[in-house]
Design a protein around this nucleic acid. Structure first.
Lengths: 204, 204
DNA sequence: GGCGTTAGATACATCCGCGTATCTTAAGGC
DNA sequence: GCCTTAAGATACGCGGATGTATCTAACGCC
């Protein structure tokens, strides 16, 4: 009568399955929905199995976020021109991080309130300060190609597309339409970065 | 023996007191903390009084948000020139809304998820759609003064400073330094809006 | 000043998640 | 193939919130 063919999971297999379940619940139900009860049910296991690994609910949530984050590094395609580099990178960010952004803002609220820190500081923790950002690399490549003049640029201007995309993701609680990405690049960033170049060229 | 001096509240008085209590609980405990139980206790009344007014918890939350929002209209000073208009308005927004923005962004994610809405939709609910935004008014005034040419402009470009300020408020979980407001206006918005004007003037 | 309205105080059954304890049974190393 | 380990299924009491049902007493209007 053992038709069930149990195939009982153990160790890392089980843990990954639980964290995947937790991530699903987190994105579908929100932070409040991530109960030991719900995650255990979704993972097809029972609460004591979770309690043996994570003492508090937020430990479980943090583990799920970390696993997801590590599993999806952002890629920065090299298309050969500035505009396509920017659009492709923004699309990658949008596809890979939009759910994450909304989730993170929920998850870290208590952490922020308790420690007095904020998103900026958390981001600086995760990303070592020496490393250039995606758009800093994109601009550097454009300068190397001769597509942009080699002049100093304000970090705010260079990273503007990323900030605007992040803003739109937060405001819409999810992925951003492709038209918004185009607007950001074509209506805002390229005119701005070309205006800066022109102004400096005019001086020369 | 009626030493309590009850002064029992009714109607709008009571309702305002409840909504104030709900707002306090919302900012202190987050969306999950806004239970009928907690709000009734904070307002010094009892749950049935709340149930007589709002059937669902999110109705109560929305009412509290709306009340707070309406109670603090943004003022738009008229300084006589574009740059100072922009900076003064951003400072007003920063001072009047930064607390609310952080609360909304983070505390309300669960609300958004529950109601299937997002920040954009909530803003449209609270703000009547026909009315021009602050920066639309600022630009219109600059056009009237002859400071900017009367050309069509992308809403994204016009409202860019507001979006960037909102983004910075969200990322810093609070008020934004004055230098950031200057950057937004001087490094991003004015060059961009002048570049657009110049480009169109060049054609003429 | 009487009366309809409604605030405020219970009481209640119910549901849900928590955290722990206990027991079985499958998995996997030796 | 034995034996340690841990998965998985209960079960239990607890606490907190829900939604409703009464009942009283204060308010305010005519």
């Amino acid at each position: 009568m053992t038709l069930k063919g149990p195939a009982r999971r153990r160790g890392a297999d089980l843990e990954d399955a639980i964290l995947d379940a937790a991530w699903e619940v987190l994105t579908e139900q929100g932070h409040a929905g991530v109960t030991f009860e719900a995650v255990a049910a979704r993972a097809g296991t029972s609460r004591p199995v979770l309690y043996r690994r994570w003492a508090h609910r937020d430990d479980l949530v943090l583990a799920a976020i970390t696993r997801f984050w590590r599993g999806r590094p952002l890629t920065l395609p090299d298309t050969g021109n500035l505009r396509d580099d920017a659009i492709a990178f923004l699309r990658n960010v949008d596809a890979g991080r939009s759910r994450m952004m909304t989730v993170m803002s929920v998850q870290f609220m208590d952490y922020f309130r308790n420690t007095g820190t904020n998103f900026n500081q958390l981001r600086d923790l995760v990303r070592p300060p020496g490393e250039p950002t995606g758009f800093e690399k994109i601009v550097a490549r454009a300068v190397e190609r001769g597509e942009l003049p080699d002049v100093p640029r304000s970090p705010r201007v260079v990273n503007l597309p990323f900030d605007l995309l992040r803003h739109d993701m937060l405001m819409s609680m999810g992925q951003v339409p492709s038209t918004s990405i185009m607007e950001i690049v074509d209506e805002v960033w390229l005119p701005l970065i070309n205006a800066g170049s022109n102004r400096l060229r005019d001086k020369a």
